[in-house]
Amino acid sequence: MGVKTFSRGDIIFRQGDPGDCMFDIQSGAVDIYVNFGGTNEKKIAGLSAGDLFGEMSLIDYSPRSATAVVSADDTEIRDISKDEFVAFFKKEPIKIINLLQQMCDRVTKTTQDYLEACRTLYERQETGAEKDADLQARIRKFSNLHKDFDSRVNA
């Protein structure tokens, strides 16, 4: 569980890279981007001391889903491998429980969005020409979300 120091602009990992460890920010700041450096680059999070990131690759060996870029000089980051995960949990149980809670919240929210999207698709097909403002807003919301999904896949 070594701590390393980074400078502003350093890349911790890139979207699409293989990965198997997570990171704990001791001090400084890290920004998370999708499509970093591309025309549809989008910052999705700004993290600081106490925040964890990169956990998905540790949990299921998936490739990195985003790029992590250091945004302040002298940023100190601890890396945690899968073998070190349990020891890290014993050291910082609250951080891991919070992480678990965040993952649960994401599943819950995504499920709600999915149900709302299904309802929207159904209503769109049923109402024909006369769509009320609420339905139109939802159609726009999910069409935009499609463009978001699409841009991540085709980065």
Binding site: E55, M56, I59, D60, S62, L99, L100, M103, C104, R106, V107, T110, T111, D113, Y114, A117, C118, T120, L121, R124, I139, F142, S143, L145, H146, F149, D150
Partner: peptide, 22 residues
């Protein structure tokens, strides 16, 4: 956590599918 990440991946896939249809 792995179970949760599997579920997240699946529901994300389903959401992406419906969004595309819309």
């Amino acid at each position: 956590m792995r179970n949760l990440s599997d579920r997240l991946r699946k529901i994300n896939g389903k959401l992406a599918d419906v969004c595309r249809k819309i």
